[in-house]
Computed example of a mutant assay.
Amino acid sequence: MPDGFIKIGKVDELRPGSMKRVDIDGRRMLLANVNGRFCATDDTCTHEDASLSTGSLRGELVKCPLHGSRFNVCTGEALEEPAEQDLKTYPVRVEGDNILVGLV
Rank of each mutant, 00 (worst) to 15 (best):
I6N: 10
V34W: 00
E48D: 15
G76C: 08
I24Y: 05
S51N: 15
E60C: 13
I24Q: 10
L31P: 04
V22M: 01
A50H: 05
G36A: 03
R27M: 06
V92T: 01
M1G: 15
K20Y: 11
G55I: 00
H47I: 02
G9E: 02
C39E: 00
G102R: 04
T54I: 12
L79T: 12
G26L: 08
R70K: 15
I8D: 02
L87Y: 04
C64F: 09
C74D: 06
K88W: 05
D97R: 08
V104W: 10
L61G: 02
L52G: 00
L103F: 11
T44S: 08
V101P: 01
H67W: 11
L31D: 04
A32E: 01
N98I: 13
H67G: 09
G4P: 04
G9V: 05
G59I: 07
D42V: 03
G9A: 08
G59N: 05
D97N: 14
M29N: 01
T44L: 12
E84G: 13
T89S: 03
D86E: 13
D23P: 02
K10E: 15
S53V: 05
G76V: 05
L57M: 07
D25F: 10
R27D: 02
P82A: 09
L87W: 01
C45M: 11
D86T: 12
T41W: 04
L61M: 12
F71H: 05
I6C: 14
R27W: 02
D43L: 06
G55S: 04
C39K: 01
G68Y: 11
R15L: 14
V73P: 00
R15G: 12
E60Y: 09
L87Q: 08
H47A: 08
S51K: 11
V34C: 01
E95A: 13
R27I: 07
T41D: 02
R27A: 03
V11C: 05
K10M: 13
N72R: 11
L30G: 00
N98S: 14
G96H: 07
M29R: 03
T54C: 12
P91F: 02
G4V: 08
P65D: 04
S18C: 07
D23Q: 07
R70H: 10
L31I: 15
N35I: 03
Y90V: 02
E80A: 01
T41P: 01
F71P: 00
S69I: 04
K10W: 13
P2Q: 14
N72W: 12
R27S: 05
A50Y: 11
L61F: 11
K10H: 15
T54K: 14
D3K: 06
R70N: 11
L87A: 03
D3F: 06
R28G: 10
Y90G: 01
M19V: 02
E80C: 03
G76M: 10
T54H: 09
G26P: 05
H67F: 09
K88H: 06
P91D: 05
C45H: 07
A40W: 00
L57Q: 04
A32F: 01
A78C: 14
L66R: 08
T46H: 08
R27Y: 02
P65K: 07
E60F: 07
Q85H: 14
D43C: 09
T44Q: 08
I8G: 03
K88T: 10
D97I: 06
L103A: 11
